[in-house]
Design a protein around this nucleic acid. Structure first.
Length: 742
DNA sequence: TGGTAGAGGCTTTTT
DNA sequence: GCCTCTACCA
């Protein structure tokens, strides 16, 4: 793509001085603009790369930008600061954190660590069970406050009832315990930087004068604490360049404020506003559909994407009976695309919730199509991986009591809850870390004043093991340390003895060892601490590998910033997308709609939308109504797809071929045969609209015969209530429901 | 202290 | 429907 920049893009690249706001529609080439702007600054304006700071949304985006710049002008990416807010925050805090009491070797707590710490805090008081729904819930509340720059003190001041008061107290305690453990949670990585800049003018000035040019990608998804960090960093030169799209703001639930875009000109007077509306990605049809959908949102800046590319195919609608059938239909769709010459790596399947990946995964496994799932059960969240990492974390920072508790009796070494509770209570009482307490006391007797002799002896054994690991960690690079942990704790033996599915778990541990080796090969600093830092900051999307030759399954949120030739969006049903929890609030429905818009605009050539008429939800089977978003797609852009033989069980015939030895082409015959045995659900759906009337006898493909009780609305929005002979009453959208008069 | 069985909660999205 | 946590017993 070495084409010429268009006029607007060129303006965005070359207009270097003062604040600039770029409203960049989906596929309008904003990544390119960002990269070229940096290249322009260095090459043509003569700015040294170390005077430039750029924020990206993921590490992957940062890596790609670095790579492109490196290709254009070798050597430049070395001294350039490009990264996520979190990664940049860590970098600053490792250098200057000590000015506000953040010790050098702090641990980074992920959501799980934070929840564990909060659990320990709340379980100290019985009363908290009534106030706190779950540690996660509490962490959510605290996280939101941190992201809004609210201290525990301020939270206490503003607390309006007993629950809020108690939450504020727990927030304060949480902060105290984090400090005692020498740990920062995820939000702290940014919050502490803001605190540092507020507390120390010199440090702030040092960074603000160093970074003459500050660039921010995905600006619509910045939250107040990130905005505060940006403000501080850009305070001296005010050469702040932000790129965003208010229509793609999908992180409101995480505190992101679209207002940052809408009010940018007020906060930064003299802002040059540049709009990029020409789309270089999608077909006209896909853009028409997406434009129409997003037009249903009020309170947006308003824009219309256009392209001078081809009209392209219509958006295809896939209707299925249930989740499993949907998965099979999606599988057939993908297979047909591949037969037509599409590459698997250019195909993505997107969904609202991670849980939806299960059925899809099953279908693709059965059909032997290679796929990669982003997110879902995250690698670094697996129990066995966390165990080994917990050893690493405690080695890097012995005061990390949350992780010490995790490993002190894993594998089992006879140190039970009673002992741990004793030490923990003592720790809370004295303010000393648990490791500190264990190691102190009379010589040869860990926690001599705390534990009974038998327990103390077992703790002694643990301390000896730990000391031997420490001596490895002292001189050896990260991979050797990880290996030593696995060996000396006999961790694999523990997995084999205790877990029936030990094979997969052992593989995961091996993969972690592998990851450590990979890290050591590619990184200058090979220390355990550096490794832990990288592990803490990677996101799921960072693992996305287009060279794998596999199709991609992921949430719509994860798809932000990516693009594919073919995109399938599944689960377009009321309650799932838009999600139940958002459905009562117009504001939240609009965010869901933006999420749908993001999904649609990921597609270059082919877009498929899929829904099912029943879906399992937490064990129950529930009838579902097609999403309102489907109705917002203009009829002339939409076409009912023939998703091949759609018999729900078709691929069961291929079960014997799951080892992948047999290519999927050879299954076609089996499936045609199976389709004859199974009812063909596709042929069941409405080709032309039927006028339903009250009292009419109908047959629904999944619920059987019934009587129409009520008809509401008109045209595409007609809703029909049916009482089924089997007893249930359900409401459907006439346009989509797989039923007809009998 | 460790093992087991039953209850309960969970699923919205993530750096 | 699955996973995690808790309570109780050996």
């Amino acid at each position: 793509m070495s084409n010429e920049l268009n006029e607007r893009q060129r303006e965005a690249v070359t207009c270097t001085e003062g604040p600039v706001l770029v409203i960049a529609g989906a596929g309008s080439g904003k990544t390119r603009v960002l990269t070229e702007r940096i290249a322009h600054l260095v090459r043509n304006v003569g700015v040294p790369p170390w005077n430039i700071l750029a924020f990206t949304f993921t590490n992957k985006a940062a890596g790609e930008m670095r790579e492109r710049l490196e290709r254009a002008s070798p050597g430049i990416s070395q001294s350039l600061w490009v990264g996520t807010f979190h990664a940049t925050g860590v970098r600053i805090l490792r250098r200057h954190g000590d000015r506000i009491g953040v010790r050098r070797h702090f641990s980074i707590y992920d959501a799980d660590d934070s929840a564990n710490l909060l659990k320990a805090i709340t379980s100290r008081s019985m009363l908290d069970a009534r106030v706190v729904k779950s540690p996660r819930w509490l962490h959510d509340r605290i996280s939101r406050m941190k992201n809004e720059l609210m201290s525990p003190e301020l939270a206490m001041e503003q607390a309006r009832d007993r629950v809020e008061k108690r939450v504020a107290e727990l927030y304060a305690q949480y902060e105290k315990d984090l400090r005692r453990a020498n740990a920062l949670d995820f939000d702290d990585l940014i919050a502490k930087v803001v605190e540092l800049f507020a507390a120390d003018e010199d440090v702030k000035a040092e960074y603000a004068t160093r970074f003459r040019y500050v660039l921010v990608d995905e600006f619509q998804d910045t939250n107040p604490i990130q905005m505060a960090m940006i403000d501080a960093l850009a305070s001296h030169y005010r050469n702040l360049f932000v790129v965003g799209d208010d229509d793609q703001s999908i992180y409101g639930w995480r505190g992101a404020k679209v207002e940052h875009i809408l009010q940018f000109e007020d906060v930064y007077p003299g802002t040059r506003v540049i709009r990029l509306e020409q789309n270089y990605r999608s077909t006209q049809t896909i853009l028409d559909a997406a434009n129409q959908v997003i037009a249903n949102n009020v309170g947006r800046k308003g824009k219309n994407l256009w392209t001078d590319g081809p009209v392209g195919d219509k958006v295809q609608l896939i209707e299925s009976l249930d989740e499993e059938t949907e998965a099979v239909n999606v599988f057939h769709t993908v297979r047909a695309l591949v037969t037509k010459g599409e590459n698997l790596k250019d195909i993505a399947i997107l969904y609202r919730t991670n849980a939806q990946s299960r059925a899809l995964e099953e279908a693709f496994k059965l059909g032997s199509l290679p796929y990669q799932i982003i997110g879902s059960v995250r690698f670094y969240e697996r129990m066995e991986v966390r165990d080994v990492l917990a050893y690493c974390k405690v080695l890097a920072n012995p005061d990390d009591s949350t992780n010490l508790k995790r490993i002190i009796n894993v594998p089992r070494r006879g140190i039970g809850k009673a002992s741990v509770d004793l030490v923990e209570a003592k720790s809370a009482e004295t303010g000393r870390s648990m490791m500190d307490l264990l190691r102190s006391g009379a010589p040869g007797a860990p926690g001599a004043h705390v534990l009974p002799a038998a327990a103390a002896k077992r703790c002694q054994a643990f301390l000896e093991l730990f000391a031997s690991l420490e001596s490895v960690a002292e001189h050896e690079p990260a991979p050797r340390v990880v290996e030593a942990i696995v060996e000396k704790t006999e961790y694999m033996k523990y997995l084999k003895d205790d877990y029936p599915d030990s094979d997969a778990r052992i593989e995961n541990v091996e993969e972690l060892v592998n990851a450590a080796h990979l890290f050591a090969e590619s990184s200058e600093d090979k220390s355990l601490r550096a490794f832990l830092e990288e592990v803490a900051l990677v996101a799921d999307v960072d693992a996305l590998d287009p060279e794998k030759g596999a199709l991609t399954l992921m949430t719509l949120h994860n798809a932000k910033g990516l693009e594919f030739d073919c995109v399938v969006i599944t689960g377009l049903e009321e309650g799932l997308f838009p999600h139940y929890n958002s459905i009562d609030s117009e504001r939240e429905v609009e965010e869901e709609r933006r999420l749908f818009y993001v999904g649609m605009t990921r597609a270059r050539k082919h877009l498929y939308l899929s829904c099912a008429s029943v879906r399992r939800r937490m064990g129950h089977i529930e009838g579902s109504v097609p999403s309102r978003f489907l109705l917002e797609v203009p009829e002339q852009c939409l076409e009912h797809a023939v998703a091949g033989a759609s018999a729900g069980r078709a691929s069961a015939d291929t079960a014997g071929a799951t080892d992948g030895a047999v290519g999927w082409e050879s299954h076609a015959r089996d499936e045609i045969a199976a389709a004859h045995r199974q009812p063909d659900y596709e042929s069941f759906s409405q080709e032309e609209s039927v006028e339903f009337e009250v009292g009419m006898r109908i047959r629904h493909e999944s619920f059987g015969p019934g009587v129409v009780r009520k008809v509401e609305g008109g045209g595409d929005h007609t809703r029909v209530t049916v009482i089924f002979d089997s007893g249930g009453e359900r409401k459907f959208l006439a346009r989509f429901a797989p039923m007809r008069p009998i």
